[in-house]
Computed example of a mutant assay.
Amino acid sequence: MQFDFHSTRSILVERGGARNLAKRIAERGGKSAFIVTDPGVLSAGLLEKALPQFKEISLPVQIFSDVQADPPVSVIDSAVKAAQDSKADYIIGFGGGSSMDVAKLVALLASGKEKLSEVYGVGMAKGPRLPLILVPTTAGTGSEVTTISIVTVSESEKKGVVSPQLLPDVALLDAELTLGLPAHVTAATGIDAMVHAIEAFTTKRLKNPVSDCLAKEALRLLASNLHQAVKAGGDIDARENMLLGACLAGMAFTNAPVAGVHALAYPIGARFHVPHGLSNSLMLGPVMRFNLEAAHSMYAELGQIIKPGLQGSTVEQATQLANYLGGLAGALGLPQRLVEVGITAEDVDQLATDAMLQTRLLQNSPREITLNDAAQLYREAL
C-alpha cells in the first residue's frame, strides 16, 4: 500500500468564529488583510460579522468583491492586481467555492513569481504563496480543504490549478454564516458535496483508505441532514453538519479525485452558466447508471449509508441508489432535467465534445467515457 494524503493545516469549527477573524490573522503575524468575496456575500451582510474587529484592533483590510460564479481569467487577474496594489500580507477567501478558488490563486500569484497561464494542471504551481484563510459560506464545494482552483478559460472550457500550495493555513467553518442560505442554494450545494464524496469513493485513481473513510462519513452527515437543512434553514445543528460534511468530502476528493459527473457538468456550467452544484446534480443519475457495471459494489456500500435498508443484489442496490440520487434534485425543488435549464437536443454534440476536453477528470472514471457515451448521457439527462 502506498499513497500520499494532503490536507489543510488547521480546520477550525466554531459557531460565530468569523467575528474573531481579525484576531486570528493578527495572532499569526498578519499586518494587513485582503478579503476576496462576491456581491452576494456583501448584500447578505455576512461580512458585517467579521469587519468590526478589524477596526477594533486597527488591522487594515481591503475587500475585493467582484468574484462571479465560475470565475474567468479576467476576474483572477483583477483580484491579483488589487491585492498587489493593497500590499496586504494576508489573504482571506470569504464566500462560496468561487470566492475561495479566487483567493487561493491570489495568494499564489500576488508575489508575481508565477503566472496563471503557467500553473494550469497538476503540480505546476510551486509557490510560495501568501498566508491564507478560507471561510466557506456555503456547504458544498469543500474548496477550503482542496488543492484545486477552477478557472473558466473560455466559453466551453474550465481548467484546474492543482497543487498542495493552494491548501490554506486555516479553514474556518462557522455554521452561522450558512443560516441565511436560500433553500435552492442549500439543496444544490448539498448535492454537490455528496457528488464529491461519491466520486472520491469510486474513483479509478488514487483511492485510498483515508479518503474512503472521509467520503463515507461525509455522506453520513450530508444524507442525514440535507432535507432538514433545506426545509428548516435556521436549524444550526443541521447547518453545521452540512458544513462539516462538505469539508470532509472536500478532503476526500482532493486526494481521490472526482470523475465523470464533474467532467460532464463543467461544460453545462461553462456554456449555460448553470451553477456548479446544479450541473452536478443534473448529471449524477445518468453517470451513476452508466458506471454500474464497474462500480456497483462500491455504490451498494454507499447506498447503505445514504439509504439504509436497500435490498437485493449489489447491482440492484446500486441501481436503486442511482435512481434515488437522480431524482434528489427534483425532490428538493431543483430542476431535474437539462431542458429545464435551457439545454436542448441540438446542444448535445457540442456539450459532449466539450466534455472530452476534461481529460484530468475523465481518467478517474471507473468506466471509460467516450465521445459517444458522453452524448448519450446528455440525451438521457434531457
Rank of each mutant, 00 (worst) to 15 (best):
M1T: 14
G17H: 05
G17D: 01
K23H: 14
A26S: 14
G30Y: 08
K31N: 09
F34Q: 03
D38T: 00
L42N: 07
G45H: 08
L46H: 03
L46F: 11
L46E: 04
A50K: 13
L51N: 06
P52E: 12
D70V: 03
P71H: 04
P71T: 14
D77Q: 15
Y90M: 12
D101K: 08
L108M: 10
L108G: 02
Y120D: 06
G123N: 09
A125C: 06
G127W: 01
P128M: 04
L130T: 11
P131C: 04
L132A: 03
I133Q: 12
V135T: 09
G142K: 05
V145W: 01
T147I: 10
S156R: 14
E157D: 15
V162P: 09
P164V: 07
P164A: 12
L166C: 02
L166W: 04
T178N: 05
A183P: 15
V185C: 00
T189R: 05
G190E: 11
A197Y: 02
F201E: 00
L214D: 03
Q228H: 13
M242W: 10
A246D: 02
M251W: 12
H262L: 06
Y266D: 12
F272P: 01
G277S: 10
L282W: 08
G285W: 03
G285A: 06
P286G: 05
V287G: 04
S297Y: 04
A300T: 02
L310H: 03
T314S: 12
L325Y: 02
A331F: 08
Q336G: 13
A352T: 07
L357M: 12
L362A: 02
T370S: 15
Y378I: 01
E380R: 08
